[in-house]
C-alpha cells in the first residue's frame, strides 16, 4: 500500500488501474466511513456492506469518474447510500425507539467503550441521542469523529459552517432537555 501518498495521487493511480491505490483509500477511510454510515443505518453490519459496495463501485467507475475530492466523494456516497437503504427498508422494527444498544457493544469486556457505555449514564445518553431529529443527531455524532471538523461536515452535508455550529449547540441543548424530562440529570449522578 501507499500510506504516504496524498488522496490526489491515489486518485490518479486508481485511474491507472492500481488496486493498491484503492486498498490504501479503503484503509485510510474505512473506519470513519463505517461510523459515518452507522449514524444513519444504526447497524454496523449494514454500514460495512454499504462501504464495500461503495468501493466496488468506485473501482468499476475509476475510468469515467472525474473525482476531484475523493474524500468528499466517499462520504457523500456513503450518506446517499445509507439514506437510500433506510428509505427502502422503512421497517417499523427499525424505528428509533427500538434501537438495540447491544449491537454497539463489544463482546470484549476490557474495551473503553464497554467500560464507558456500561455505565448507566452513558447508556441513557446513547439511547437518547437516537431520539434527536436526524439533522441534530448526525451533526452531534459526526462532530465527534476523528479527522472530522466543522468544515468537513459542512461540505459533506452541503450546509454552512455556521449552520453546523448552531445545529450542534441545538442538539446538545435538546438532548439536555430530553434527558432532564426523563429525570436523568436529576437522579443524582
Amino acid at each position: 500500500m501507499y500510506p504516504e501518498l496524498t488522496d490526489e495521487a491515489l486518485t490518479n493511480l486508481l485511474k491507472s488501474d492500481d488496486p493498491l491505490a484503492l486498498e490504501t483509500l479503503f484503509d485510510r477511510y474505512y473506519k470513519s466511513l463505517c461510523q459515518f454510515c452507522a449514524v444513519y443505518t444504526k447497524d454496523y453490519t449494514v454500514a460495512e456492506e454499504i462501504i464495500a459496495d461503495i468501493f466496488i463501485k468506485l473501482w468499476d467507475n475509476r475510468k469515467e469518474s472525474d473525482i476531484l475530492k475523493i474524500k468528499n466523494y466517499l462520504f457523500v456516497s456513503a450518506r446517499n447510500q445509507s439514506i437510500n437503504y433506510k428509505e427502502k427498508k422503512k421497517d417499523p422494527v427499525d424505528l428509533v425507539e427500538n434501537f438495540d444498544l447491544e449491537q454497539h457493544l463489544f463482546t470484549d469486556k476490557e474495551t473503553p467503550f464497554r467500560i464507558l457505555s456500561g455505565r448507566e449514564s452513558y447508556q441513557r445518553i446513547l439511547l437518547t441521542i437516537d431520539q434527536l431529529p436526524l439533522r441534530q443527531r448526525e451533526i452531534l455524532l459526526m462532530s465527534r469523529f476523528e479527522h472530522f471538523d466543522k468544515q468537513k461536515i459542512a461540505e459533506i452535508l452541503g450546509i454552512s459552517v455556521r449552520t453546523v455550529e448552531t445545529t450542534l449547540y441545538q442538539s446538545i441543548k435538546q438532548l439536555r432537555e430530553l434527558l432532564k424530562n426523563s429525570s436523568y440529570f436529576n437522579s443524582g449522578s
Partner: peptide
C-alpha cells in the same frame, strides 16, 4: 458519550 457511540469493532 457521543464520542463513544461508535467504538465498534469493525470487520475491515
Amino acid at each position: 458519550a457521543s464520542r463513544v457511540y461508535f467504538r465498534n469493532r469493525d470487520n475491515a
